[in-house]
Amino acid sequence: MSVLVYTESENGKFKKNALEVASYASEVAKLLGTNAVAISINATENETLGTYGISKVLNVSNDKLSVFNAKGYANTIVQAAKAENAKVIITSSSTDAKYLAPLVSASLKAGYAPNVVAAPESTSPFTLKRTAFSNKGFALTQINTDIKVVGVSNNSFGIIENATTAAIENFDTSLEDGNFSTKSTEVDKVVGKATIADADIVVSGGRGLKGPENWGMIEELADVLGAATACSKPVSDLGWRPHGEHVGQTGKPVASNLYIAIGISGAIQHLAGVSASKTKVVINTDPEAPFFKAADYGIVGDAFEVVPQLIEKLKEFKAQNA
């Protein structure tokens, strides 16, 4: 038996979450007294996974999988799980991983626990701590089936080095056309900019910024910090910013190291979606804004005065600490 982890890549390069789930898999393998095997699809640099405790990489090079396809990818993972007699299959919480994990779970009749934030509390029964109620609580979930699928929350376990040598094996999959009955025809994606899902830092603006014309300073602040930009729900409903930037309970979840909320009141639905971020900073004119109760650091002040200063001082700080 083994632990299998799906390590995601983009243009051949592993994503940050791939290193985190590899670290997680290696911890689970240790607890179960077995090895952690990774499956990577069209990735280069497979050896690097050894740094995070992966002892074998199943390397799939397949043109049919050059574009993400949930069914094709899920079937590849299922075939690898069978070949390796995997008892635990680990994925990240990226949008793609959350698309394919239920498909893997169904084909292997395996219970699936998503949004897991820590190594298993116990392996028999197999029990995991995960967020529930949109971060307003945690659940301890026990998986009862022989095979288990675990989705690890982004930025929860961390990337942990545990150097070993990864043996690289080519893995051939047989994928019938039926796997490709859903086809991608166009991808519209920001390139060269951190995404809300992957970013260490997220800079977010709310209705307090008055209008879309004032987002220049938000983008500049994000630029200085190498951060992704986000917004509250009304801001996207008003069309000030694209829908993909809306974060919160009904938008994208945020689990960054630093979340900076500017002109956002901190409604319960907003907080639910961003509270997994480790450090939260709020800038708001109203000292009574609920966000101050949820934040670590706060400035009571006008965003139009504070943010430009913050940008200048951060540029100086970056120049000194470069």
Partner: peptide, 21 residues
Amino acid sequence: ATQDTKFEKPAAKGAVKLVDA
């Protein structure tokens, strides 16, 4: 396939540190 055996609330948050504007 699964069951939730126990729930927890997030740890209470410390007070915010305010910095002058």
